[in-house]
Nucleic acid binder design. Structure first.
Lengths: 165, 165
DNA sequence: ATCGCTACTGCGACGCGTTGCGATAGAGTG
DNA sequence: CACTCTATCGCAACGCGTCGCAGTAGCGAT
């Protein structure tokens, strides 16, 4: 067939139903190859899952969703692939209030995270909001902080309202 | 003996050699009682360990040091006690780059944390350094962030020097 | 000194994430 | 197509931290 190489149509693994035509995802394959890395059915599964996710997802959730597509998926493969994808800039991760990993797919803009300890909700803070502080750290200490990994824990407006203090 | 109640001299458990005469530690006992909580040999062991620690210590390290004093120490007891002590304000914890817990005993001043992803070293940042940003978050979003729990990951001056980027 | 209430302990099992290792299989080459 | 090199996989075991439960033991009251 003269199909111009849609990634993942030739799977033997049950790697999802709809092949992601998204150029972002197909480019991952090339980027892996460019770094001497490989394109495998397992990685395709994970990319399919990521493509179908939005917002923040925990590591365990990603493993679970991969299993829904391919029950043979093992955690180690998922976590290792997520590491690779983070190197490629496809995902970013930070740690929630309890230290567990949360991943964000292809963030449109770099951002940090706020977690309310009381209600558990979370918000994103734009780079602009924290840039002044990061800039100060850079100037005074030469420390270059990773915004994406930043997670501030505290109490949100609503929860402060309820229990004044 | 007319010894005026040095906490922990009457131990049956092997809770340390030198009893901490430090008023800070002895006050913990009273503070527990004031909250309807209890003073136990296990808690004394943990306080002894904390008293002998300075800077930041991981949870696992604390468990290990408790075991050195009392080999019967179990992790769950240690972690649960640390929770209680955090409520009392005796310790503060945050999460390192890998999400593991790090505890700080009785910080003299509230501070956040910087972790270099490359060399693994860490620094403290004074409240003053981050206050402007926290203030902005408070004003714009009503979010009250916990400085002690803040951990920024990135690259320190030395490591940026070596691998420019 | 004894009693009763319940905070606390220790145990066992679990959940998340990581690591080492032998086996497998991408992908470039002849 | 067969061959080689090595990135990747799956497994099993581990480390950190949490949780539920049944028994223990602080501590205030009698």
């Amino acid at each position: 067939m003269a199909r111009p190489y849609t990634p993942g149509v030739d799977r033997a693994h049950p790697a999802a139903g709809s092949a992601p035509a998204d150029p972002v995802w197909s480019s991952v394959r090339d980027r892996l190859h460019a770094s001497g890395l490989r394109w495998t059915p397992q990685r395709r599964t994970i990319l399919d899952v990521l493509a179908a996710s939005d917002g923040h997802v925990t590591g365990a959730e990603l493993v679970e969703r991969c299993r829904a597509i391919d029950p043979a998926t093992t955690p180690s493969t998922v976590y290792r692939t997520l590491d690779v994808l983070e190197d490629l800039g496809v995902v970013r991760h930070h740690h929630g209030p309890d230290g567990r990993e949360e991943f964000h797919v292809l963030p449109e803009a770099e951002h940090g995270h706020l977690h309310c300890r009381v209600c558990g909700r979370s918000w994103e803070v734009g780079a602009a909001e924290v840039e002044p502080m990061l800039d100060a750290l850079r100037r005074h200490r030469g420390f270059e902080a990773d915004i994406s990994h930043m997670a501030l824990v505290g109490r949100c407006a609503d929860c402060r309202e309820i229990r004044r203090g």
